[in-house]
């Protein structure tokens, strides 16, 4: 029982870290998708639509709309900002046209239609009707979205394009990118087309070091998990040395004992993996960042756990093979 609990905990923590890592990809994809376009147009030489504040004239949108393959185009202004009213909350600010590309569907309330109105992701901890201050202005929260965050849980905040232009470009009719529905089939000098893949990579790039660190930690945590599973099984085998000796004294073949250990390791790992999946889902709710458990991980975890369990049982199996049945004699 203790062995199952210990292995469950370490597998659950490993699963959570994997979930956190996968969550970054899921979050990025979800947020880019929420903006509604297939690609983005930015000023030539700019790395992407989200991480560089580069200025495009708003009427470049008409130029983009004239390109073959473009079904719809709308300008956005995006920048990292912060809600100044308590509690201070980092946000990713996006200014877009009401009902235009760049303005996501709301899960509560409505989209901003006028200056001074905002939609916030629910992770900002505000509700419809709240008033927030940002950049020296106040905004009424008129709607909420869910799952539109960046950089491991920073909520997005959507305002009208005009408000964003006031905040970022001092009222100039400029944009940082044009969101495009369809795929432009031609180019214009001074403009770059960024497809959805590159846009996601751009949005994720500020976390590159963190992602590398998490990947390394995840790798090492899997090794630790393997070591713990192996240790638990080995210690269990050590504790049962006398039991093995007794069975061998009765004429049980060593390989039958090994088979029993392997089956036990298999059951132990399978039970632990199942419990770890349940526990990690409970614990995930405590984390502010997006924790994602894709089907790939759910299939991989039991396979890894079983492999680790079987490898771990080898140490115990060796013990079962070498134990001398004569040790069954003598006192306790």
């Amino acid at each position: 029982m203790i062995a199952v609990a210990a292995i469950t905990l370490v597998l659950a923590l490993t699963l959570l870290l994997s979930g956190f890592r996968d969550g970054i990809d899921v979050e990025t994809a979800r947020t880019v998708r929420a903006l509604g376009g297939d690609s983005f147009v930015v000023r030539e030489g700019v790395s992407g639509p989200f991480t560089t504040v580069s200025q495009l004239a708003e009427d470049v949108t008409e130029v983009v709309l004239s390109l073959p393959g473009v079904e719809r185009a709308d300008p956005i202004v995006s920048i990292r900002h912060a809600i100044e009213s308590s509690p201070v909350t980092d946000v990713y600010l996006v200014g877009a046209r009401p009902n235009g590309l760049g303005m996501p569907a709301v899960s509560a309330g409505r989209q901003p239609r006028a200056r001074g109105e905002a939609v916030l992701d629910a992770r900002a901890g505000r509700k419809v009707g709240d008033r927030v201050a940002l950049g020296g202005r106040t905004f009424d929260v008129v709607g909420l979205v869910r799952g539109v965050t960046v950089w491991a849980g920073v909520p997005a905040m959507f305002v009208t394009l005009a408000d964003a232009q006031d905040l970022v470009f001092a009222g100039a009719r400029s944009a940082t990118a044009i969101v495009v529905s369809g795929t432009p089939q031609a180019r214009r000098v001074g403009l770059s087309i960024v497809d959805a893949d590159r846009a996601r990579a751009d949005l994720k790039r500020p976390l590159a070091n963190a992602i590398t660190t998490i990947d390394l930690l995840r790798f090492f945590l899997w090794i630790v998990a393997a070591a713990i599973v192996g240790s638990v099984l080995y210690v269990s085998a050590l504790e049962r040395s006398r039991e093995f000796a007794v069975f061998k004294a009765f004429g049980t073949d060593s390989w039958d004992l090994v088979g029993t250990l392997v089956v036990e390791a298999f059951v132990l790992s399978a039970l632990s993996a199942a419990a770890a999946v349940a526990l990690s889902r409970v614990l995930a709710a405590l984390f502010p960042a997006v924790i994602s458990f894709p089907a790939r991980t759910m299939v991989l975890l039991p396979l890894v756990a079983l492999t680790v369990g079987l490898v771990g049982s080898l140490a115990g199996a060796r013990r079962a093979i070498v134990v001398d049945p004569a040790t069954a004699f003598g006192g306790p």
Partner: peptide, 15 residues
């Protein structure tokens, strides 16, 4: 030896 113990011998241990 294993077969001998399995079929021919019964052991009662001290412990």
């Amino acid at each position: 030896r294993t077969a001998f113990r399995r079929h021919t011998v019964g052991i009662v241990f001290q412990a």
